[in-house]
Design a protein around this nucleic acid. Structure first.
Lengths: 225, 225
DNA sequence: TTTTCTAATAATTTCGAGATTTTTGTGGAA
DNA sequence: TTCCACAAAAATCTCGAAATTATTAGAAAA
């Protein structure tokens, strides 16, 4: 197994409930899971630290970043800023091909969200939903013609997702999300940059206020994810 | 010497003419310069790679990113986006203390720029100017109340600076820069968010068009830095 | 001459042991 | 009981050698 694979796998676990918030990441433990040496794990952890998905302190090792309402709000703010800009650029430069791809991405996401809405046990859809939601938001900025903007957006998106990971997801957010995603799609297809920016803002607005965040999962009603 | 120091030193060399564009970074060479093992150097290089200051390819080692007019334009675009947003937030939340600090930072930068303008040999001022210019632009966003925005801005700023590093600096940009920095200061102190955004845009606008960039230093007239 | 295969060289990557530092655990004094 | 010092344990960090992979150089064939 290459260290690239370890990087990809750890990245995935770090943004989708693979670890607890604040959990210590020991190279000695992980080397058994991946069947390689501690040095190799250490190398990967350093890379993840520079991406912001892992906290590093000299002589004190690595940790999963703790849950922080302030950090989540800051990440939401940056996501709105970058995603709105990227989408506006896509509207300008994307053309019909981009509109088609966006419609497809939304269709897929919408389909999964409706199935989740109807299902009894929602857990088997989690992975699918994550993938489709990421694909939709990446497609929004896909035609912005700036690889740097896309890469920066992905970093922020992943850290945002990581902040929201919790063991017991309420998943009651779905009906609102369906409306949000649809509103963004419609505004983008109409070519209305200002309206699209507004809808992207609305989609993430509830995460902007630190006081709004539910620190305790069992007390959550209408937020989370 | 701790690896943190090596990281800081390499980072500095990478954004201020310490290496050639596209130059190969061999761990075996650098370990002699820093008096440590190749593994330690390798670790630092990985961290710098995640920051975007070094390019990494599996089984092909590390390189200083090549000069790219497209990349510079993309970085300029992102800098404008983030710096304008951060400054607008600072205007809203900064208060008198921030205005005072911004005035001080501008005074210092302006002082150095005037001395450079008058001097025969400009090279001894390079380091001072770099520091003062960074301090001014960081102060602009200092009161935005988002550590994440500040950290993201620093990453983009450093990569932007790295793209502009060249052996023979013409330094004829100075008179324009003095005006730009002053215009930003005045707009910010007046509390005019829209005007401040515009002036930040104007300051970096010439880097936005890839066709505008001078790939060949000796042919440069009015651009660079 | 140009192309292709092979051998030699050089670079990258992995690994585990030893050195250093932090954390944990125990016992004694205030 | 609470605090501090000291010892033991565990974790982190550094290092150089061995294994793997890429690059170069030269010879043979087209």
């Amino acid at each position: 197994m290459f260290d690239t694979d370890i990087h990809a796998d750890l990245q995935h676990r770090l943004i989708s409930n693979g670890f607890e918030h604040g959990e210590k990441l020991r190279a000695e433990q992980l080397k058994q899971h991946y069947g390689c040496s501690a040095s190799t794990v250490r190398e990967v952890l350093f890379r993840l630290a520079s991406e912001g998905l892992v906290d590093f302190q000299e002589q004190r090792g690595f940790r999963v970043p703790a849950m922080s309402a302030t950090l989540l709000a800051e990440l939401a703010h940056l996501r709105i800023l970058i995603e709105a800009e990227g989408t506006a650029l896509s509207i300008r430069h994307g053309g019909v091909a981009w509109e088609a791809r966006l419609t497809a991405a939304h269709h897929q996401l919408s389909h999964i969200e409706k199935r989740i809405h109807a299902a009894e046990d929602r857990s088997p859809f989690e992975g699918l939903w994550f993938q489709a939601e990421l694909e939709f938001h990446q497609t929004l900025i896909a035609a912005c013609q700036s690889e740097t903007l896309k890469a920066t957006h992905l970093q922020i998106y992943q850290r945002f997702r990581q902040q929201l990971m919790v063991a017991d997801r309420s998943f009651d957010f779905i009906s609102k999300n369906i409306q949000h995603h649809h509103a963004i799609l419609v505004a983008a297809l109409e070519g209305d940059e200002a309206l699209t920016r507004e809808k992207i803002h609305d989609h993430l607005a509830r995460h902007l206020d630190p006081a709004n965040q539910t620190q305790n999962p069992q007390a959550s009603r209408s937020s989370a994810i």
